[in-house]
Amino acid sequence: MTLRIVVRTFSEICVTVGTLIVLLVVYVLYWTGIRADSAMDDQMDTLTKRWATEDKDPGSTQNAAAEAGPPEALHDDRSYEGGKPFAVMYIPRFGADWRRPVLQGTGVGTLKKGLGHYAGTAALGGEGNFAVAGHRRTYGDPFKDFPRLRSGDVVVVNDGRAWYTYKISSRPYKTLPDDTGVLKPLPKPLDPGAAPYDRPGRYLTLTTCEPEWGSSHRLITWAHLDEVKAASEGKPAVLGGAGG
């Protein structure tokens, strides 16, 4: 009789643990994606609304600066509020309708809502290195196709004032998680042969995890600023815009 109870309880525990594992997989694979989609939509709405109000104020210095041509020090990092969206990124290689909000900071909570701009790296379009991190898997899989990026692919970022088109310089570079040199204003990875540039400029760095479901390494890609257009000129041609 006692043995029966022991066996029964053991089986019940096994069934319970199995169910928990299945539920956790469902949560990680599907539920985080659903949550991330709605969070990203919220961030996009926030941006659209904010930009709409900014447009009604054409006399603002920021608009004037953007229309004056390529920004020198148009805005510095401090103008981005932590955890808040400030731009939208487009990467045609990931799909014609691939777009994600870019938020300030790379906290766990921030990265659930979109891509995260490393605090302390250059501002968008600025001299130095504008570095952005994103999930490869879970939370909407934003950087799922990261290894498909190739030299010459474009990364377009719109901050409501201007379209910044960056051109990727090389295939993704696999490195170790503590290789912070990749974020330097002049990127300086652990492997000197992977260094993409030899002089200061306006760069963009994207980081995500490698392997896809692991965390032992990171994948990095670099791009240089190729073109800046005022937001009023419409989407760049690479995104199927009219201008170009």
Binding site: L111, T138, T180
Partner: peptide, 16 residues
């Protein structure tokens, strides 16, 4: 779980 680590960190404060 390990899928969250997408940033390069540690060795804080290099140039960043």
């Amino acid at each position: 779980l390990p899928f969250n680590n997408v940033t390069v960190d540690e060795g804080m404060g290099a140039a960043t």
